[in-house]
Design a protein around this nucleic acid. Sequence first.
DNA 1: ACAATTATGTTAGATGTTTAACATTGCAAA
DNA 2: TTTGCAATGTTAAACATCTAACATAATTGT
Lengths: 204, 204
Amino acid sequence: MKVLPEKTVERLSKYRRILNVEYERGERYIFSHELANLLHLTSVQVRRDLMLIEYSGSHKRGYEIKSLIEHIGNIIDPKGDINIVIVGMGNFGKAIAHYFNKRGKHYKVIAGFYRNASHCSTVFDGIPCLPISELQDFIQKNDVKMGVITVPPQQAEIVMHQLVEAGIKGILNYTPKPLKVPEGVFLEEYDVITSFEKVNYFIG
Amino acid sequence: MKVLPEKTVERLSKYRRILNVEYERGERYIFSHELANLLHLTSVQVRRDLMLIEYSGSHKRGYEIKSLIEHIGNIIDPKGDINIVIVGMGNFGKAIAHYFNKRGKHYKVIAGFYRNASHCSTVFDGIPCLPISELQDFIQKNDVKMGVITVPPQQAEIVMHQLVEAGIKGILNYTPKPLKVPEGVFLEEYDVITSFEKVNYFIG
DNA sequence: ACAATTATGTTAGATGTTTAACATTGCAAA
DNA sequence: TTTGCAATGTTAAACATCTAACATAATTGT
């Protein structure tokens, strides 16, 4: 299958979560317009996305929820588990750690890192909290694939370099400091301040 | 001036933050390619954005930092202060509250809300924490313009309705539950889980 | 004074994404 | 059987965004 558009991948993630809810509620089939309504999209967009992942429904009953969940999983889920580290165990880092501790099926936050580990109580929410000095060694020994950066912005760049050098392939930067990663590493950035200023602009 | 593209508004926010740093460092002029490098963009994109906001530089010295900062402020900053409430004072809500407490010039987080306010210590980081039952009343009495939703996903929709009814014009939804707001309200959504799954897909 | 240089400013084309229009299918009712 | 309906599947147009190419202008060196 050809590489999917970013926006389609994002929606696949959301489709599946909704589908799981519907399946739990006892539903077995769903129409494109129903799925669309649940996500506030159009049915055309849903069908187009499913076309791109080469999934077919039936004209009378729509899409079979269970097999669609599996189909999406085959596309967006990792083969085994993905080990994650969070660098910067402030409120933001803790929020993410907590989130995946409850929900993450394939995604395991296996450690948090802090400037000096004594500040962050040794274990948060079951996740060990280590000093940043051990970061690179830990990543290589534990086959860590993804890293989350939630340190103060001044430290973001150095942390990014450490992650990349240690062999990490995916980085989520929740710092306002813009980063640039080398070829072969995927970077996702989200900047809270920018979001607020954008919202304010469009409120007008 | 015509309404700006979303992406341009986002970059303006980032331009200004970088420009402030440069100004603090003693710089007074900056070239488009310098600004671009600091943000990992192209100089063309910078110049195009500045064209859209009708700001001109000089051929020999580039852009005058101070006046550009002001120019961007005139476009994206609110007239007075923007009062913000955060609904859901978990780690995520606290992270945002803390952020704006330190940095926000025009954006004031004036209250956090929690299901029952006794859980959240009465004041977090100088911000009063109130029970959700007082939400709507508080918004109307304090001219709150923006609301942040960081509650568990099941409660997101009802909270959104409360915010809208109370007259809020901008909503940031950090819940995985997709929301739909009425005409005239601007909604920004960010879904952590989706971001992780997207990164994983493109690590491939 | 004037070419060369090096920036900015602008327009047009390329790309990514969404929306709209249309074709197709399978069932149900006449 | 065949006609109508209500869904899916596909293609094409519209829209948003980014990139590349070009035009313009100010300064410097000769």
